Amino acid sequence: MDAGIQSHPNSEMLAQIGNGAYGTVYRARSASGQIVAVKKVRVNLSADGILLSTLRKVLLLKELTQCEHLNIVKLLDVCTGNRTETDLYLFLVLEHLEQDLSNYIEKCPQSGMGASLVRDIMFQTLMSGVDFLHSKRVIHRDLKPQNILISSSGTVKLADFGLAKTYDFEMLLTSVVVTIWYRAPEVLLNSTYATPVDTWSCGCIMGELFLLRPIFYGTSEVDQLDKIFSILGIPPETSWPEQTTLPWSLFKNYTAADLEGMMPDCSPDGLNLLQNLLMFDPCQRISAAKALAHPYFKEHGYIACYLNCIFTRILRRKRNVHKYFELTKDCNKINSVAHSITLHY
């Protein structure tokens, strides 16, 4: 291990498990013997110390952890390592899960992972986790299979909030967001954006779960848009953003491809949800909250009510309820249990 990681006081580093633009992740053992993930981040220092933007991100992680949402990776500890005049190492100790969704997809047989498993993954994280973030005015901005973790028991959690940002309705957001294959059209076109960029990424991931490969895999912003239009069809010129340097006429007049033929295992309700997640116009794109109530989930017994902020706080004391819900998938029983817990909270 390098000198920076050796200075971490509370964990024994076991192996490097990830490396990206925002830090290196290690599998580690805490002082109590718990297996954890330690993310080592090099941060720049200002004349006054740690940059305010870095502190905000740490505080955001701590705030999200305090809510104890089932589908959000928990921040367990924060400490500092080696320091120079210009930068220092920051260590984020996070709960450890066995694999990410990218590895999970790679291990799937060519026959696919099955429609019911896709639905469960989509409901657990890509919808309930994202809905929770959006309810906290947080845009993840980098949703991709590598940032979605899966435990051995099948629990799915959102991770890696390096690009996450709280927002208000007047702020300008930077355009450097989201790995290109999961990037929404409004970002590719350098237009304004908000929470719908996350639901677009959810749609891309849903398509990948059925295809076992990225649904849109461009090599540049223009090529990515071309790949999107070749499958979804080119949008009408009237819906094209006004403030963009790329003209609508630059692209071929594609018609929509046969999504049902591309994804024969996806049900009609699933295709409808996918199309709503992948709407070109972000104002027409379905929100995470509305997606949770979509027939794709509702008709199979998935209930969104227990994932709202109030019920998440209830689950802090009743951790076995989620397991119960998974086993029963029965609307009346779920609502009854929810009412009972509320009375005793």
Rank of each mutant, 00 (worst) to 15 (best):
Leu246Gln: 13
Cys283Ile: 09
Ile231Pro: 13
Gln243Asn: 15
Leu250Glu: 14
Glu237Cys: 11
Pro241Val: 00
Leu259Arg: 04
Gln275Thr: 08
Phe251Ser: 02
Met262Ala: 02
Gln275Glu: 06
Ser230Glu: 09
Ser230Tyr: 04
Asp281Ile: 06
Met263Val: 07
Thr244Ile: 04
Asp269Arg: 00
Asp258Lys: 03
Ile234Leu: 07
Asp265Thr: 11
Leu232His: 08
Thr245Trp: 00
Asp258Thr: 03
Leu274Val: 02
Asn276Gln: 03
Pro268Ser: 05
Ser267Val: 12
Thr245Lys: 10
Cys266Gln: 13
Ser239Arg: 07
Trp240Asn: 02
Trp240Asp: 03
Leu277Trp: 01
Asn272Gln: 01
Phe280Asp: 04
Asp281Pro: 02
Phe280Ala: 07
Leu259Gly: 05
Leu277His: 05
Ser267Phe: 11
Cys266Gly: 14
Glu242Ser: 14
Thr255Tyr: 05
Gln284Lys: 07
Thr238Cys: 13
Ser249Tyr: 06
Met262Lys: 04
Glu260Val: 12
Met263Ile: 08
Asn276Tyr: 04
Leu277Ile: 03
Lys252Leu: 08
Leu259Tyr: 07
Thr244Val: 08
Thr245Gln: 09
Gly270Cys: 13
Glu260His: 13
Ile231Ser: 11
Leu273His: 00
Glu237Ile: 14
Gln284Ser: 04
Glu237Thr: 11
Asn253Ser: 12
Glu242Gln: 14
Gly270His: 13
Pro282Gln: 00
Gly261Gln: 01
Cys283Leu: 14
Gln275Ala: 06
Leu259Met: 08
